[in-house]
């Protein structure tokens, strides 16, 4: 018990110390992106892995957080923390909006709704280009910090907090009921659990962290853009990261995100082909090891 705590502490300290052991600002930047994508993928895993909801549109929630915060900053000139809060709120409202059809629809039908939600958000951003900046993106006047290390600590802090909360929730009775409801909603209902309440809570929680990370990403990148935060391709990255790392583990998706972004950077000299290689490795992994990286690490006796 004591030993394990020490290992957790050492790993986190090692990550926290990364900026001080001579790693370049560029790698700090890569680690920062890994943290953001890690939070996106963890939040998606809560919905999919536990609640059994195939959300094709994680970028709907991320995008709401990003544009909510970006608009509050660029158009209303509110202070940065308030902008982040507003963006998060927008994402939570979006999560509630998704929860309504989720309670009625199953599988591909719900998946399509989430996909359409992304497309509609994208259309709305382009149609109201006057306020949103359209496809060119929205430059925000405020940023988290000009210092790469400080930005990294913000992202790492977010990752640790989101990870702790989501893991605690997932491993509690809440997570178990959610899983039961995801597999057989009627039976869970029959056992006396208020499935609706749990599902809504899962959507709110997932949306909260997706939106928060999306909002903070805006102030890290200095711009909110369809391409970086809303596009279906962003959602695909998130889903691949989660499935690749090991669904229903919360931590696994972070590994998936680290792989996707890390491999993308390492293979950058290959240019475009790097994308094919990364996708092929991911495809091979899920074909051969469906439980993802974490399933591999945990050995074969796992769910």
């Amino acid at each position: 018990m004591k030993n394990q705590r020490i290992i957790v502490a050492i790993v986190l300290l090692a990550l926290a110390a990364a900026p001080w052991i001579g790693i370049s600002d560029y790698i700090i930047g890569v680690l920062t992106m890994i943290c953001f994508y890690g939070v996106f993928a963890m939040s998606w895993d809560l919905l999919f892995g536990y609640a059994g909801e195939v959300n094709f549109g994680p970028s709907f929630l991320i995008g709401l957080g990003a544009y909510g915060a970006g608009l509050a900053d660029a158009d209303l000139g509110l202070p940065l923390p308030l902008c982040v809060a507003l963006g998060t709120l927008a994402a939570v409202l979006g999560g509630l909006l998704l929860a309504i059809p989720a309670l009625r629809l199953r599988g591909p039908y719900f998946g399509l709704i989430t996909l359409v939600a992304v497309l509609l958000l994208q259309d709305a951003i382009v149609i109201f280009a006057g306020t949103t900046g359209g496809e060119i993106g929205l430059s925000v006047p405020d940023i988290l910090s000009v210092n790469a290390t400080v930005n990294f600590y913000y992202a790492l802090g977010l990752l640790v907090i989101a990870g702790t909360v989501l893991l605690t929730v997932a491993n509690s009775s809440f997570g178990l009921i959610l899983q039961a409801a995801g597999q057989d909603a009627i039976e869970a209902q029959a056992l006396g659990f208020n499935v609706v309440k749990y599902k809504i809570a899962a959507f709110v929680l997932s949306a909260f962290f997706s939106g928060l990370a999306g909002a903070m990403l805006v102030f890290y990148l200095g711009t909110a853009s369809v391409d970086a935060m809303v596009d279906i391709a962003v959602g695909i990255q998130v889903i691949i990261a989660a499935v690749l790392g090991g669904r229903r583990t919360i931590i696994g998706p972070v590994l998936g995100a680290a792989f996707l972004i890390g491999a993308g950077e390492i293979l950058r000299p290959l240019g475009q082909v790097s994308g094919v290689v990364v996708a092929a490795v991911a495809l091979g992994t899920i074909l051969i090891f469906p439980n993802g990286f974490l399933g591999l690490l945990r050995g074969r006796h796992s769910a």
Binding site: I7, V11, L12, L15, L167, I251, V254, F293, L294, L297
Partner: peptide, 8 residues
């Protein structure tokens, strides 16, 4: 969690 963090 620990294994995962180690892997990370």
């Amino acid at each position: 969690v620990i294994r995962a963090l180690g892997a990370l």
